[in-house]
Amino acid sequence: MNAEQMSGLIAERIPGAVTGQNFENVDPWLEISPVQFHKVCEFLRDDPRLAMNYLHCISGVDYLEVDPKKIAKAGFEPHLEVVYHLSSLEHRHRLVLKVFLQRWQDDRRGEIPELDSVADLWSTADWHEREVYDLCGVRFTGHPNLRRILCPEDWEGHPLRKDYEMPLEYHGIRGR
């Protein structure tokens, strides 16, 4: 099944969930509304026509142009994307889901955005969501154990954000 058909199935079952799509990209992707995201995932996993039983990867991508000269030409509003790569071992088809989030919850700087955790659907998501939380700063609600995974627990900031600044000092170790 290709991404177009899958998009149709999702739209039929959960109207309004697919808020955007790109079938021309090398890996076609669907944009899913964050509110219905968990519902969509549950449908993708449990519907026998889709049977997306394998979650490959969750990645966070920060879209923020930090160079003031390039802001005008950036072509996007600052936002954060969480990308899910799914596949079905049974049907041998793949799908890429994207969720667009605000960089800061309600534009309150320092408050990271929230998204439903899918760790209850695929256990892979457990560690992968922790990684996205750690490096990109997304709070996954309903995650059983959301704490940093690669950085130390008392680390500040989320390194894969484009406006991240390396701390000058960490426990007496000089940074930068």
Partner: peptide, 14 residues
């Protein structure tokens, strides 16, 4: 803009 490495051992260790 962004590169990603999904590690196999990462999921295997989980």
């Amino acid at each position: 803009w962004r590169v990603r490495a999904r590690s196999s051992s990462f999921s295997n260790l989980a």
